[in-house]
């Protein structure tokens, strides 16, 4: 029963892999925008904003992504809001990513040496001008390696969307396995595909880090 692995199965896996990439991009873009706002809130001069955003980060970082997925997919309909698997997975990833990127980026903003902020202040630049023209360009240089590294986490975490019925790579593997009963073969293929997606990003992140090293030291001296 079930037959053997054929081109159609591989096509199906490829389709799943595309959705994994798509979902990752949704998570990165949504979480990136939200995370940028979180990072700005975390360094806000307003104490209330800082405390609230810190609480948000703690709450999300202390909650498994799986539970966030359950909450959006099964919890929201109970409150009368129906969501598709794509919406649930995309929203959950966005929330999850925003907390982590927000925190990574806050650290990057704060690692721009304090005298740089002071020099910008001394030149009468407004807060938004200081941010956009002095701090952000330097923070982006510092933030790139860890952000690319975190994209690996996003890709791997999209596999959790399979529990809300979203057919990405892991879920498409499960479906094929249900008919072929070749778990070792199929999950090996799945693992290899994940690796192929993630490894170049890891390498890229390491390379950026090496190149960014001297730049960061020079920033501290300057």
């Amino acid at each position: 029963m079930g037959g053997s692995l054929n081109a159609n199965h591989l096509m199906f896996l490829g389709y799943g892999a595309l959705w994994t990439i798509g979902l990752s991009l949704i998570g990165l873009l949504g979480g990136g925008v939200a995370g940028f706002i979180v990072a700005l809130c975390r360094i806000s001069p307003n104490r209330t904003v800082r405390v609230l955003s810190a609480g948000y980060v703690q709450l999300i970082q202390g909650t498994p992504l799986l539970v966030i997925m359950f909450l959006t997919y099964f919890g929201l309909p109970a409150l009368g809001v129906t969501v598709s698997p794509l919406m649930a997975a995309g929203a959950s990833l966005t929330i999850f990513v925003s907390a982590y990127l927000g925190e990574i980026w806050r650290g990057c903003f704060e690692s721009v040496p304090k005298p740089q902020w002071e020099a910008a202040e001394g030149l009468a630049l407004s807060r938004s001008q200081r941010m956009m023209k002095v701090i952000l360009p330097q923070a982006i240089r510092i933030a790139t390696p860890p952000t690319v590294g975190f994209m690996v986490q996003i890709i791997k975490n999209t596999s959790l969307a399979s529990v809300v019925g979203f057919v990405e790579l892991a879920r498409s593997g499960q479906i094929i396995n249900n008919s072929l009963f070749e778990p070792f073969l199929i999950y090996t293929i799945i693992a290899v595909i994940y690796f192929v997606l993630c490894y170049p990003l890891s390498r890229f992140s390491h390379r950026l880090e090496k190149r960014g090293g001297p730049a960061r030291i020079e920033l501290e001296v300057a």
């Binding site: 005298p115 002071e118 020099a119 001394g122 330097q138």
Partner: peptide, 15 residues
């Protein structure tokens, strides 16, 4: 700060 210029020990040019 438009009327006052300040120069620091650590230069603080924007790199």
């Amino acid at each position: 700060r438009q009327d006052v210029g300040i120069v620091f020990q650590s230069y603080n040019l924007f790199p």
